[in-house]
Design a protein around this nucleic acid. Structure first.
Lengths: 204, 204
DNA sequence: CCTTTTCTGTAGTGATCGATACATAAATAC
DNA sequence: GTATTTATGTATCGATCACTACAGAAAAGG
């Protein structure tokens, strides 16, 4: 525990939260160091001393985002008694969260860095990994549904997880285009309309 | 027809096509003038003389994209005999087009500029307008289905159009993450699984 | 006290951003 | 021919990019 030296005069976590907000609105490459330091209330040397680089700051911001903003959505998967309810509540919470007007619309993980270029492969890789984790969480919940007899044994959990993950990704773009919670819930209803067909026939 | 003056030494349309490819891969702000001129085989003064500005070049590139790359997908809507087949073929052509390996994955209109900032409001507005046009095309095809008796009179065409547009947007991100055509077709199957439920109950 | 360690603000670094000035080249108009 | 018009290549422009050198300030260790 390094208590030596001049103590930091700003709240590191609060600054990180502000940086997360900037990345959320503007994306990785759209957020300049000036934007970040202005929002964080510090000068650039403090940013580099505390976080290392813009890239490292972004990675910490996505980690915070996953923990703070994303947790509630994904908790729905575990808590719901059936796979069907789990998916439905997961999408409904997504609709609500993505359209809140007191924060940026859509998802930082989905929209943060879609265009790979030479300098930010690590950023894209990190976001892709997180998106893959989300897909895996959906698939595992569906597999639990199969194991518990709610879904037929031939159910293609991976394909259905891809479908619902794709819907969620699309909702990020709809939300970024200004879609209301009501509009997003209409999409959720559409996605859930697929459930009975898929659950009945063994999917896909 | 201005035949006066020194004639242009490059093919304007071919250069525009190359610029479109750069914007498609890297997005609006990810594509630098250097990237563009290198791909177009010209120097920056020629770019500005022929296209005016980076912003104007992008707008022309999206227009070309809509006309060349997007036409085939949207033609499916008009040609198919039923609304159901129209939507299904529309999504299937999307799956194929977005996953082609001889061009960038996903859609330029969807992925080109998702982060609004002060300098590129016109770009975002243009892409949003094109996305809105796509939504309107889907809605109109569904309304035709209602008019022709294929769909019930209470069918919520706008909401269902939103659902399928959202799926298509999500497919852009999946494709950008490396999803194969097969994987995208699984998502299409999922989306179409919703059809019979929506068509039977009056949707949403 | 003095040294060490760490943070802070000022003021930059070289690189690259989008966009141009300028002289020259190549066409038409007369 | 000369004048006019437009395109081209070189060589930038000021602004901003991500990042940092440096000196002073504020703490602990001795």
């Amino acid at each position: 525990m390094p208590e030596r030296g001049r103590p930091r005069t700003f709240d590191r976590t609060a600054a990180l939260r502000h940086a997360m907000g900037v990345f959320w609105v503007q994306g990785y490459e759209g957020a300049s160091i000036s934007d970040l330091t202005a929002a964080m209330g510090i000068n650039s040397p403090s940013l580099y001393a505390a976080f290392g680089s813009k890239e490292a700051l972004f990675l910490e911001a996505t980690e915070l985002y996953t923990r703070i903003e994303g947790a509630d959505i994904w908790l729905a998967l575990e808590e719901a008694p059936t796979a069907r309810l789990a998916i439905e509540r997961f999408l409904q919470r997504t609709a609500k969260a993505y359209s809140q007007t007191d924060r940026p619309q859509g998802c930082l993980i989905t929209l943060g860095a879609l265009h790979q270029d030479s300098t930010r492969g690590a950023i894209c890789d990190d976001l892709r990994r997180r998106r893959a984790e989300n897909h895996a969480a959906l698939r595992k919940r569906l597999e639990r549904g199969v194991a518990e007899g709610e879904l037929p044994s031939g159910f293609d959990c991976a394909a259905v997880a891809t479908f619902f993950a794709t819907v969620q990704h699309g909702m990020s773009i709809q939300a970024r285009d200004g879609a209301s919670c009501t509009a997003l819930l209409a999409t959720v209803a559409g996605a859930m309309a697929a459930w009975q067909t898929m659950a009945g026939t063994g999917a896909a």
